[in-house]
Structures are given as structure tokens and as C-alpha cells.
Design a protein around this nucleic acid. Sequence first.
DNA 1: GCGCCGATTGGCT
DNA 2: GCCAATCGGCGCC
Length: 203
Amino acid sequence: MNGGRRAATLPVSLFRQDAATVARGLLGAVLVSEVRGCRTAGRIVEVEAYLGAEDPASHAWQFRRHPGNEALYGPAGSWYVYRSYGLHWCTNLVTGPPGQGAAVLVRALEPLEGIAAMRRRRRVTEEGLLCAGPGRLCQALGVTVALDGMPMHRSPVRVERGVELPDEAVLVTPRIGITRAADWRLRLVMRGSPWASRGHWKK
DNA sequence: GCGCCGATTGGCT
DNA sequence: GCCAATCGGCGCC
């Protein structure tokens, strides 16, 4: 489909910045997965920033460490994949200096490539349900804990440059689905995107 | 050791 | 709109 032409992967320098800036830079970019030789891809339309030790909603709150979240303290641009509610995988890109524990959660994608594979993995046909949610998009792209701790640039799942969004195209809202510090406005959504998770239309 | 809880999802009391 | 599924981490006994 891409005729062998490879789009540019986002530079590591982007991920060394603070989580909110990285979140802004990720919106509109393309998440490309080549897990087990199967190519799937989607445009990032919804993200959330988690700031690290000072953020009560962060898994790194007060520098809490345990075997499950070590990747969060790794170098910028590496993956942090965790299990949610004992069932689903959710994926983040680590940002900022190592040890800070900041990251950006990828919450929704517009499916672009490998839609048949996404349907097979998700066991759902409705396109709007393939990648609308952090757990759903991981399932659609084959993302599991196997990715946890990998530097994104040397992993089978990478983020490539996508569309540049003007500020008017970016909707900033409180984070959703959390109980602590839920009012912090660190959720970014591509304005008007029908591919965002269902919390999108709530204020 | 035990019980509760969550950055979720899907099915239906 | 409500709740079960499922499990590691954490608080508390």
C-alpha cells in the first residue's frame, strides 16, 4: 500500500519535552504497528498527558515504583504498556528526563491501514469501535506487554509524522475515566473527530 | 493474608 | 445506565 516508501518516524527529541507538549505533537501523527509481520496503522486523534510524581493520577505519583511500571521511568520515547482492570492493555509513550515518570497515553485512533486485521483481532466489524479507546486500540494493533520498555524507534510499533494541526483543530478537555486529578485539562482531542473515545462529546 | 480499587470494555438486569 | 470480568498493587489487620 505504501509502495515501500517509509514515512519519517517522529524524532526522539520530541519525547524529551514535557508530556503536555508531546501530547500536542502526537495528535495527528500516525501510529504504525508491524507486530508479527501484520501492518496496521491509525491516526492519533485523542491523547492524555500524565505528568509523573506530582500528578495524583499518574502511575508514577510520588515516585511509586513496582515491577509493573519500571518502563515509566525509562528514557523518553520508550513504551510503557500496562494492564487495565486486569483485562486490557493500554499504551503510553514516556516523555521528559529519565526518572520523571511522565508519559502520554494514546486513547483513540482513526483506523487507516490493516482494517481487516483490526476487525479480526477485535472481533468487531463496526469501524467506529476498532480503535476508540485505549484498550481497544491496543487490541486492534496487537499491542501487548511485550512492547513494555522498548524504545519506540526500535520496536515494531512506531509513531510517524502525520498532519500538522492548527490550534483551532485541537480540543483540550479534562482527563476522563480517572478519579484523581480528573479536572486537569490534559486531554487533547482532534476537534470534531468521530473516531475519539465515547467520552469525547461530554464536557 | 485479605479486601478493595482502577488511565476499560462490553453486555444487558 | 449499570455491572461483571480480572489481577497486581497497596493499605490495613
